[in-house]
Amino acid sequence: MAKIHVTATVNGDEVEFLCELEETLLDVLRDELHLTGSKEGCASGDCGACSVMLDGRLVCACLVLGVEMEGRSVETIEAMAAGDELHPLQQKFLEHAALQCGICTPGILVAAKALLEKKPDPTETEVRFWLAGNLCRCTGYDKIIRAVLDAAAEMRVS
């Protein structure tokens, strides 16, 4: 089967790739572009480990086909820090020990950033429901929620 040629913007850069019809955006990111920060935990949109921003909207990369990417723009965890400067969410996750194994962390950070862009002052309940699509098996979510709330508070000040 012939592969499809796709041109898309990934983390601000124009990239071209060839992809099979059945390949997902997550397959393309990981296997073609070797951007492995987005993780596959389920490939069915249930765990959120592959959360990315697609044209400014939070999606699971495993639920988007690679061929749908033509002309579109995706942002992944790899673009979250600005040079040496970690995003406040990344910094707060470190300070709060909001990760143990760290496999869910990229997806949760991308999802949390999307939340704070929509809603700079979320309640604990809002954070919990927003992140309900991001599974974490290690932490019990406590420190994750605290880190997000703390980052939100800091971002409001600055």
Partner: peptide
């Protein structure tokens, strides 16, 4: 004490290499 873990930055930037991340 509660210092930041040494592998922390790699884990929040997506740089940490897990089982499926080697090519």
């Amino acid at each position: 004490t509660r210092p930041v873990r040494p592998d922390g930055v790699d884990k929040v930037t997506g740089r940490a290499r897990f089982g499926a991340d080697l090519f």
